[in-house]
Amino acid sequence: MPLGFAAPLTEAVRRLAELGYDGVEVQVRDTGAHAAEALTRTVEAAGLRVLGIGTGPVAAQDGLTLTDPSPDVRRHALGRLLGAARLAGELGVPVTLGQTRGTFLPGLEDMQRLWAERAVHRLAGEAADHGSRLLLEPQSRAGTSLWHTPAEALAFIDSLDAPAGLVLDTHHLDAEGVDLVPAVTEHAAVTGCLQLAARSARGPLTIGDPRLPALFSALREGGFTGWLTLEHTQDGDSPKAAARSWTALTDAAVVLP
């Protein structure tokens, strides 16, 4: 994944632990509960924890979405997501949904929205049945036709019969013109994950980013209990990118009262 640490899992968790990270969000493509033991063993051997299961590769690598006109593609997409939910349940962590919900085609919008909503209702139920929880990520309209803002995502979450929450991403909020700190303050309690990147070019964080202390304060005041993910470009050197972001985070945390 271009926005994730580019290395085999064993090497990635070792390098991240050396830098001081506490855990990892693992992006999965095609797997299920059977992978939980091996995944846990590999991550915990480095002293880290799996904090969440992401599903980005389902669409990003294989082009499978819940709104594809082909019933077979939609079925495969949902099957992948259900497997990820079962894996997340086995691990006792949330499962996240982003771009796999897809984009609309002219004339099919109403039907595609219905397909997506039905599928996500089933996904949320599967996650809950297996001890996990769905986190829905508001994303910019450049990548999906559904649920672009926290308010839109929450309105849909309210229709679910299973517990669910949000993933907030600084890049997508900026792209949609959402005022970052107020949005995080308002939604911190229902947010399971905050994804961070530098404002320009979605790269690693930089020391002195004025948003970071304000975001940390908003999370604390809002009762945030989730995790922070560094989801940004790697600039050809994942260890260096991870070190830069870690330094920026710890520098910003120092100034908090």
Rank of each mutant, 00 (worst) to 15 (best):
81 L>E: 06
82 L>S: 15
85 A>K: 08
85 A>Q: 07
85 A>N: 08
85 A>Y: 08
86 R>E: 15
87 L>M: 14
87 L>E: 09
87 L>Q: 10
89 G>E: 04
91 L>M: 10
91 L>C: 11
92 G>F: 03
93 V>L: 04
93 V>G: 01
94 P>R: 02
94 P>S: 06
94 P>T: 05
94 P>I: 02
95 V>D: 03
98 G>S: 10
100 T>I: 00
100 T>M: 09
101 R>Q: 10
101 R>W: 07
102 G>E: 05
102 G>Q: 09
103 T>E: 11
103 T>C: 07
104 F>N: 06
107 G>Y: 12
107 G>C: 15
108 L>W: 13
108 L>Y: 14
110 D>E: 15
110 D>K: 11
111 M>A: 14
112 Q>E: 09
112 Q>P: 04
113 R>P: 00
113 R>K: 08
113 R>Q: 07
114 L>H: 14
114 L>Q: 12
116 A>E: 11
117 E>P: 04
117 E>N: 05
118 R>F: 06
118 R>W: 07
119 A>H: 03
119 A>C: 07
120 V>H: 01
120 V>Y: 01
121 H>P: 00
121 H>I: 00
122 R>Q: 09
123 L>R: 09
123 L>P: 10
123 L>I: 12
125 G>M: 03
125 G>V: 02
125 G>H: 09
127 A>V: 04
128 A>R: 05
128 A>K: 02
129 D>A: 15
130 H>M: 04
130 H>R: 10
133 R>Y: 03
134 L>S: 08
134 L>G: 07
138 P>H: 06
138 P>V: 07
138 P>Y: 06
139 Q>P: 00
139 Q>F: 02
140 S>Q: 12
140 S>W: 05
141 R>E: 09
141 R>C: 06
143 G>S: 11
144 T>S: 15
145 S>Q: 08
146 L>N: 03
149 T>N: 13
149 T>F: 07
149 T>D: 12
149 T>P: 13
149 T>Y: 12
153 A>E: 05
153 A>G: 08
154 L>Q: 12
155 A>W: 10
155 A>K: 13
155 A>G: 12
156 F>E: 02
156 F>S: 07
158 D>P: 00
159 S>H: 01
159 S>Y: 00
161 D>E: 13
161 D>L: 13
164 A>K: 05
164 A>Q: 04
164 A>F: 05
164 A>T: 03
165 G>F: 06
166 L>K: 06
166 L>S: 09
167 V>E: 01
167 V>P: 02
168 L>T: 03
169 D>L: 00
169 D>Y: 00
169 D>C: 00
170 T>N: 11
170 T>C: 14
172 H>W: 10
174 D>L: 13
174 D>H: 14
174 D>M: 13
175 A>C: 09
176 E>S: 11
176 E>T: 03
176 E>D: 08
177 G>F: 10
177 G>M: 15
179 D>P: 02
179 D>A: 15
179 D>F: 08
180 L>C: 04
183 A>E: 02
183 A>W: 05
184 V>G: 13
185 T>G: 01
185 T>N: 01
186 E>F: 15
187 H>V: 06
187 H>C: 09
188 A>R: 00
188 A>Y: 00
188 A>C: 04
188 A>Q: 00
189 A>S: 14
189 A>L: 11
189 A>N: 02
189 A>I: 03
190 V>P: 05
191 T>D: 12
191 T>S: 14
191 T>E: 15
192 G>F: 00
192 G>L: 01
193 C>M: 13
193 C>S: 11
194 L>Q: 09
